[in-house]
Amino acid sequence: MSGPREGFVSAFVVLALLLVLTVLTVVAAYAPIGVFHVPVALALAGLKSILVVLYYMHMRHGRSSDWVVIGTGLLLLAVLIGMILSDVVTRGWSG
């Protein structure tokens, strides 16, 4: 490997962004946004994760094979959560 993939400065910039997003997450939790609490919280958490994955976990320069692994995992995660919740949500519906 030739030299660092990320500089020291970028690590601190990312940390600053992560902290800002954390503050936003807390603020959003107390804001009167009704049904949007969960989507907003998930979106902010997703954004933070993307930062960590791209910069701290070096996936900004990642190989496509590693992306395939990540993508497949996230897809199956969606299947797990989505299909189980689809049962729970529709359980009360009467035919």
Binding site: L76, M83, S86, D87, V89, T90, R91, W93, G95
Partner: peptide
């Protein structure tokens, strides 16, 4: 194979709609 597990649960109290999809 990941989309079909509910067919083990048709009589378990799983929602009918989920059952149809599975």
């Amino acid at each position: 194979g990941f989309f079909v597990w509910g067919h083990h649960m048709f009589v378990s109290g799983q929602s009918v709609y989920a059952g149809i999809v599975f």
